[in-house]
Write a protein that binds this DNA or RNA. Structure first.
Lengths: 164, 164
DNA sequence: TAAATGGTTTGTCTTACGCAAATGACTTGT
DNA sequence: ACAAGTCATTTGCGTAAGACAAACCATTTA
């Protein structure tokens, strides 16, 4: 791609608008998540566990792009409400395998039900098709670093770029 | 839409993945923006001013979804580097009209040049077409609340939902 | 057995907010 | 003309979400 002419460069950068839209959604999300005892960072974690399955803490921290000590606190929140469970890995007892519980899956479903109204509002300018398209793109874009948090909680390669 | 059957409901919610991806992009963005003396919040502001033109502070705060006192600080940063300028509105001298300067536009272009590499990396799973598609969706989704920050810095209707 | 690893706790610091109060300049209403 | 309202500003306080460091325990590897 480096050899392609400039014309093939994407003319538009997503970074600013991604941040911009994300903030909007997040602010509104907070109001509906709070009654469920959840914050956006909880929501993201539950979503990742649901979509990608169980994971070691190290891999999860890498996927979420947060410091492992902060992940501990985050998981403590979730575990306190039985939304996740930590079990020692049979392959290496130093490790925890983190799983979404049934309670957690139900809570996530509740959260998403509440979030539907938020998205109806904040993403009002998009048709349902466009929203599905957006989801699909987001899913694809975030799936990449799936490599870092390989399926299951088995040996993973070194995690890629840490993200905030 | 409320009368439509459940089948017409979007099956996927974007909130979590939007937050997730946005974080990733933002973290990487910070490293390339820092040498330019910019932070993501600066980038978003400059982008909004470029895309939507001049605006009163009140309207800008509404569009960005941040508290007016925080906007003052943000604008102070930008004005200090001559990236924006504040001029008293001729219609109402209590108001400032905020404009992107030429220096600001150049700085934004530099930032976007730097961000291209970031997006090449973080959005590697998307084709160029998909990235353009993502931009288009983001642009459309965020344009809605354009109504709040009507063209120019003239009278605006009450701003919609404040966002974070 | 020593060194390395995964997770945990604790502490410190930074950043980005929301919110409140007070202020000065300006506009609107009486 | 004066009071009330409005816009932006400064200051202060508090919260949340991180990064990073150090120390520790349990476990695994060299």
């Amino acid at each position: 791609m480096a050899s392609l002419p400039v014309l093939n460069q994407p003319p538009h950068l997503c970074a600013a608008l991604l941040d911009h839209l994300s903030r909007r959604v997040r602010t509104r999300s907070e109001t509906v998540l709070a009654p469920l005892g959840l914050r956006p960072r909880h929501l993201v974690t539950l979503t990742v566990l649901r979509d990608h399955g169980s994971s070691t803490q190290q891999a999860l921290a890498a996927r979420l792009g947060i410091d492992s000590t902060n992940l501990v606190g985050l998981l403590n929140d979730l575990e306190a409400d039985n939304l996740i469970e930590r079990r020692r890995s049979p392959e290496d007892r130093r490790r925890h395998v983190v799983d979404l519980t049934d309670v957690g899956a139900k809570k996530l479903a509740k959260a998403e039900f509440a979030l539907a109204a938020v998205e109806d509002e904040v993403l009002a300018a998009l048709t349902l098709e466009q929203r599905e398209q957006l989801y699909s793109l987001l899913q694809q874009a975030t799936a990449t670093t799936d490599i870092a948090a390989c399926a299951g909680a088995e040996d993973e390669p070194a995690p890629p770029v840490m993200y905030r």
